[in-house]
Simulated assay, not measured.
Amino acid sequence: MNERNPQVSPEVTAEIAREFLEYNPETGMMIWRVRPRKWFTTDAEHRTWNSKYAGRQAGTLKTDTGYRGVRIFGRRYPEHRLAWLMQTGAWPETELDHINHRRDDNRWKNLRPVTSSENRQNLGRRCNGRLLPLGIDRLPGSKKLRARITVDGVKMELGRFDTEEEAVRAREVAEIAAGYHPNHGRDVVEGEEPPIRIVVQLDD
Rank of each mutant, 00 (worst) to 15 (best):
residue 149 I to E: 08
residue 33 R to E: 04
residue 27 T to W: 06
residue 187 D to W: 03
residue 132 L to I: 03
residue 54 A to I: 02
residue 91 W to A: 02
residue 69 G to E: 15
residue 116 S to A: 15
residue 33 R to P: 03
residue 155 K to G: 11
residue 177 A to H: 06
residue 112 R to K: 12
residue 39 W to F: 15
residue 101 H to S: 01
residue 120 R to C: 14
residue 191 G to F: 05
residue 122 N to R: 02
residue 166 E to A: 12
residue 60 T to H: 11
residue 201 Q to K: 14
residue 13 T to A: 08
residue 125 R to E: 05
residue 25 P to G: 07
residue 104 D to F: 02
residue 74 G to Y: 07
residue 76 R to G: 08
residue 169 R to C: 03
residue 20 F to H: 03
residue 43 D to C: 00
residue 32 W to C: 05
residue 191 G to S: 07
residue 49 W to N: 01
residue 23 Y to N: 05
residue 52 K to G: 09
residue 97 D to P: 02
residue 50 N to E: 08
residue 161 F to W: 15
residue 96 L to R: 06
residue 144 K to C: 06
residue 163 T to L: 11
residue 79 E to T: 12
residue 4 R to G: 15
residue 12 V to C: 04
residue 196 I to V: 13
residue 61 L to I: 08
residue 81 R to D: 12
residue 193 E to H: 09
residue 15 E to T: 14
residue 90 A to W: 13
residue 192 E to N: 09
residue 37 R to M: 10
residue 87 Q to V: 12
residue 69 G to Y: 07
residue 185 G to H: 00
residue 93 E to F: 01
residue 174 A to Q: 10
residue 41 T to F: 01
residue 170 A to I: 09
residue 80 H to M: 05
residue 93 E to G: 13
residue 119 N to T: 07
residue 26 E to N: 10
residue 157 E to M: 10
residue 117 S to P: 01
residue 1 M to Q: 12
residue 43 D to N: 08
residue 84 W to Y: 09
residue 166 E to L: 13
residue 108 W to C: 03
residue 22 E to I: 05
residue 167 A to Y: 04
residue 17 A to I: 10
residue 70 V to Y: 00
residue 190 E to C: 08
residue 62 K to R: 14
